[in-house]
Computed example of a mutant assay.
Amino acid sequence: MTDAQYLPDGLPEPRLAEPDLERPHWDAAREEKILVQRCGSCATWQWGPEWICHKCLSPDMRWAEVPPRGLIYSWERIWHPVHPALKGHTPYLAVLVELPDAGHVRLVGNLLGDPYQTVKIGSPVAAVFEHHRGAEEPYTLIQWRCLEDEQ
């Protein structure tokens, strides 16, 4: 969707802790899709990625595409830079987004737009895919924007 960056250059690039486990999610994000794990045995959704189901302990974990929309479950306005590259780039908004179409699992991301905007729990949001094609290992971040801003 965009190659513009929400936060400044100089932040560490994300690295996969367990590439064989996590790669499907990150590869899908580069294609502007959201994939979430779902158990092939009991159909339970889960996030973050795991080798076995949290509910039934089955190893039959699969990936399912879900709509790139959710609801703000929680949020925080960050005032203090947590990394030297963020000095002078605060405040910014981080949100925990619940995905109703994925068993209500929750993803974290930045809320785009005015960092002083009023944020309401339950507000609908849509994913914005922030591509970092020039990175050592190209990646895409999933950010969020309020849909209420479009009304």
Rank of each mutant, 00 (worst) to 15 (best):
D101Y: 01
A4V: 05
V108M: 15
A64E: 12
W75Q: 04
D101N: 09
H89P: 03
G48Y: 15
I34Y: 10
E150L: 14
E136N: 10
L141K: 10
D3E: 14
H132C: 02
L93R: 09
A94C: 12
D149S: 15
A135Y: 03
I34M: 11
V119D: 06
D9A: 15
P68N: 07
M61S: 01
P67F: 03
Y6D: 08
W144Y: 09
R15H: 11
Q143I: 00
V125M: 07
C56T: 04
M61D: 03
V105R: 12
R69C: 01
A94Q: 14
E130W: 00
E50P: 00
L107N: 03
F129S: 10
L11K: 01
V119Q: 05
P67T: 08
A64G: 01
H80Y: 08
T140E: 01
T118C: 01
M1L: 11
R30E: 09
S41E: 14
R30W: 10
V97W: 13
I52F: 06
I142P: 01
E18A: 13
Q151W: 12
E31M: 10
T118K: 15
W63S: 08
G113H: 05
G10H: 08
F129K: 08
P24H: 09
P115Y: 04
P124R: 14
P124I: 04
I72Q: 09
C146F: 03
R30K: 14
E65H: 08
V36H: 09
S41Y: 01
V119P: 07
T44F: 06
I78E: 01
R62N: 11
G10L: 07
D3G: 00
A135I: 04
L21F: 12
Q5R: 15
P19S: 00
L57N: 14
P81W: 11
R38H: 05
Y6Q: 13
V97D: 08
P14T: 04
P68G: 14
L93A: 09
